[in-house]
Nucleic acid binder design. Structure first.
Length: 432
RNA sequence: GUGGCCGUAGCUCAGCCCGGUUAGAGCGCCAGGUUGUGGUCCUGGAUGUCGGGGGUUCAAAUCCCCUCGGUCACCCCA
């Protein structure tokens, strides 16, 4: 800096570094999701982190995500681009661009950006896992998609999760309902909070989401979506509910559930965690968005999908004591009391043989090296001193695991990898 | 974006209200006890721009202002 004083930087607001062991836990969570999704026939896809600003605008201009929270900027060539605030828009844009065979079933994991005031469970940079399916109108698909998410939560060990479902009807139904709400709230405007009056101008549906006490009574008595569903929408929704019942997937029918993004039609759903007692208790949500493809310039195509919040899932897992971070450990730790050249050679050798191996740098007493070995979580310590070098051996000392009661012994220097491999295999089989 | 609360060693926190010797504790870390052996125990040790900047004062971690960050509610949503 100008004054010569050293500036200590820190991550930008709402953006966090993910260090071990959290980093390993996240990787594991994504792996789990990949498993569950691929079991159901979904392929991974990775849309760009940045898109033309208009791609995201198609998501809806009445949502804060698009109007107030986007990281948009002017590129060097003058075009307006933006960091993705969610994944669906990019996926649908990709669908329109590549015109793949339908049904197109994809899953994704990735980072999104939203310029909001950070809070626990709400960050400016956050990861989502999700799926999207394009080209299928069948209500059974809605069930498959919801079941996939529900199974994933179960797989991760989250038990205190509630599924909320609703139908917003066809586009016309949704519009009619919106108008009915507008009329209703306008005729009762005096009972509405200041903030909700503002919301009413932009998006009457959103008023249903108000958490202000003053609005509660009015919201409770508001028109119900059920009265506005067309026969087709009604029939579709009934099939979805019947499907959920048949799979024993518990749900709560919530006519007031209004999802944030404007593109939702018909089936909408949300998963909330009872373990998260904050206002940020939604761990995932999604629904049908028939019509988005057209908005992106493609032909009319049915679509459905969901996005799950990685940060919130992990927070909920913490609260439930589920899905702990995997312990990081190595198979072997080399203690070199000679000059370090043995540690260098042996770790290299073992790693090439597929056996993980660590060592301490900068030497240190045997005691210090052993302490490092212990901390590394290594199952075996390989100790090399003058004596071992002289007789062409290394000392193999069991540190933990099934083998930890065994005595340490010397093994030929040239058969270390084979010896370790054998021990780990027998341990894996549950032998002595 | 609006309002409230908080910010002291790597971590969890005491001290701040009622300014005043070298700013503390536990855990962790390092070393020694055991000159070739971890995890327990004992002994010793290191570590802080008291979030940052400015102000008041003889004197500020303690008071005031600004700012940055976290957190809670609203809002929004994953």
């Amino acid at each position: 800096m100008a004054d010569g004083k050293r500036q200590k930087f820190q991550a930008l607001r709402g953006m966090r570094d993910v260090l071990a062991p959290e980093s390993a836990r996240r990787r594991l969570l994504v792996d789990r999701f990949a498993q569950v999704a691929s079991l159901a026939g979904y392929d991974e896809m990775t849309p760009p982190l940045v898109e033309d600003l208009d791609v995201f605008r198609r998501v809806g201009d009445a949502t804060d995500v698009v109007t107030k929270e986007m990281y948009d900027f002017v590129d060097r060539d003058g075009s307006r681009i933006a960091l993705r605030p969610e994944m669906t828009a990019g996926v649908v844009r990709a669908f329109v661009q590549h015109n793949p065979l339908v049904p197109w079933k994809v899953w994704y994991s990735g980072t999104n950006f939203r310029h909001e005031r950070p809070q626990k469970g709400r960050y400016r940079m956050f990861d989502q896992l999700g799926v999207e399916v394009l080209g299928v109108d069948d209500p059974d698909l809605d069930v498959e998609v919801i079941a996939l998410a529900a199974d994933f939560f179960g797989n991760v060990g989250l038990n205190d999760v509630t599924l909320l479902v609703n139908s917003l009807g066809e586009q016309g139904d949704r519009q009619a309902y919106t108008e009915a709400l507008r009329a209703y709230f306008e005729s009762n405007i005096d009972g509405l909070s200041e903030a909700s009056r503002e919301t009413l101008k932009r998006n009457p549906l959103r008023v249903l989401d108000s958490k202000r006490g003053e609005d509660r009574a009015l919201v409770a008595a508001a028109p119900n979506i059920d009265e506005f569903l067309s026969d087709a929408a009604r029939g579709h929704f009934d099939r979805v509910l019947a499907g959920l019942d048949s799979l024993d997937i518990a749900y709560e029918r919530t006519p007031r559930l209004v999802r944030g993004l404007d593109y939702y039609r018909r089936t909408t759903f949300e998963f909330t965690s009872g373990a998260l007692d904050s206002a940020q208790n939604a761990v995932g949500g999604g629904g049908r968005y028939d019509g988005l493809s057209e908005a992106m310039g493609g032909s009319p195509t049915d679509g459905i999908g969901f996005a799950l919040g990685v940060d919130r899932i992990l927070l909920a897992a913490d609260a439930e004591g589920a899905f702990p971070a995997p312990e990081s450990s190595v198979d072997t730790f080399v203690v070199d009391m000679v000059d370090g050249t043995h540690a260098l050679a042996i770790t290299h050798e073992l790693r090439r043989a597929g056996i993980s191996s660590e060592r301490r740098f900068g030497g240190g007493s045997v005691k210090a090296q052993m302490r490092s070995a212990d901390r590394s979580g290594a199952r075996f310590a390989l100790i090399v001193g003058e004596d071992e070098v002289a007789e062409g051996t290394v000392t193999l000392r069991p540190m933990r695991g099934i083998a930890s009661d065994g005595e340490q012994r010397r093994i030929p220097r040239h058969s270390i990898a084979g010896e370790i491999r054998g021990l780990m295999d027998s341990e894996h089989r549950g032998d002595q």
